[in-house]
Design a protein around this nucleic acid. Structure first.
Lengths: 232, 232
DNA sequence: ACTAATTAGTGAATATTTTCACAATTCAAA
DNA sequence: TTTGAATTGTGAAAATATTCACTAATTAGT
């Protein structure tokens, strides 16, 4: 019954898992499931039940002893803990394919992120439409961040420009950065940077595939959720 | 002098950092820098020099005592270690904005990933052009994986379809998955899954911004690389 | 009511990862 | 050649993270 909910600095790995609990709980809610236990969550997500319980103890969700966690309560607690209920204003810098894809990604909006601007240094891209937005020049970036109270900047520019874009965002008062560029971004400690570097992820995957092959892995495979049962 | 290079199962966190060393070393190479020390790398990437040295000990790069690591050797060793020199065949499932962005992302090709197909279950999307490729129907997926020796599948479909797409890829013999969907993907242990779930990353960022604000962080900020010095 | 079964919460034990600290080595310069 | 500064590689120590294992609580069934 403790679950203090407001401890101090939760490790990034825990927060990362919390996002998984959230999306899985949302799936369960969509299926009309009412209760879920730590062991079920763990099994589905490849974790031990103890890890799940310890993680969830950071959030204000009380589990109930012989039932588990109530799915809707779990969803709400995680949404609130992750700040989805408050919502964020975000801008995307870089109107290339990736930047446009993010700006148009409905799932982001649905999770509390309002994309309120797309910027590009390329004059030929300025003025283009991206969904309901128009690509704006970099010169308007600082004022926009200030005037529209932008919290988050998404860096979707080539590696060579990424750090200077980050610097511009930072001196303009941005509060956090999602880095989609290839390189590591340096930022002051009060501006958290989260990496979404997909090429790097692909490199990690390549390595994993290779070592998996080297180990000669085989597996007793049972299909995932979709194949396993007839869902709602 | 040991640096055995072929030990056993390197932690994922190490591999993730190796991709950072690689991209940073590539930047340095582009600038004509010849040597880099573990402490320089660590400072730039926010790590201790000991971590850098330990990480690099997994790869076959010998540092030299009073100099550090030779940048070109470091690049080559990391490229080789991560399998970029061998190269991979990849397909993208889901011809939405994100899927198209990935298929068209030049940086992927430059890092050894050849996108050799884009698939979608939506008949209206089948036949569309995506760069040099044509969107194909899901019915052709299994044969393509087999015939074109596809190693990696990128899952860029809505959450509701993601696991069944994964299952299809897996039974068709895919060797690794990049998951860009919202949900956790279940796969057998011989098919590694790497998460590139950008919405989840944004949620993590929202949390980080919030706790950063709660701590009242302020910072002595010096600009990153670009602002700090006059590079080559 | 009582019993059996289940499951959250958590202190203690493990396991893993990171950092420290130092010997060995190399380079540059006097 | 000698000295001094720099830097790797690595055991040992410290810090973190995960898992175990047990208690207390709750429910369902009889």
């Amino acid at each position: 019954m403790t679950t203090s909910g407001k401890d101090n600095s939760i490790p990034g790995a825990v927060v990362s898992r919390l996002t998984k609990y959230l999306t899985h709980a949302q799936v369960l809610r969509g299926e009309g499931v009412q209760w879920v236990s730590s062991s079920e969550l763990g099994e589905e997500l490849g974790l031990t039940s103890a890890t799940v319980r310890k993680d969830l103890a950071h959030v204000s969700v009380g589990g109930i002893t012989n039932r588990g966690y109530e799915v809707t309560v779990l969803c709400d607690a995680l949404l609130s803990f992750l700040g989805v209920d408050v919502g964020w204003n975000a801008i995307v810098v870089g109107a290339g394919n990736l930047g446009k894809a993010l700006a148009l990604h409905g799932e982001l909006f649905r999770h509390g992120f309002a994309i309120c601007g797309v910027f590009d240094s390329d004059g030929r891209k300025v003025g283009m439409r991206v969904g309901g937005l128009t690509v704006r020049p970099m010169s308007e970036l600082a004022a926009t961040i200030h005037d529209e109270r932008v919290d988050i900047g998404v860096i979707a520019v080539p590696a060579a420009a990424a750090q200077s874009v980050a610097d511009l965002l930072i001196i303009s008062g941005i509060r956090g950065l999602l880095n989609l560029s290839l390189i590591h971004i340096v930022a002051p400690s009060n501006v958290p940077v989260v990496d979404g570097r997909l090429v790097a992820r692909m490199l990690e995957l390549g390595h994993a595939v290779r070592t998996s092959a080297a180990r000669g892995d085989t597996s007793d495979y049972r299909l995932g959720r979709v194949g396993r049962s007839e869902d709602a």
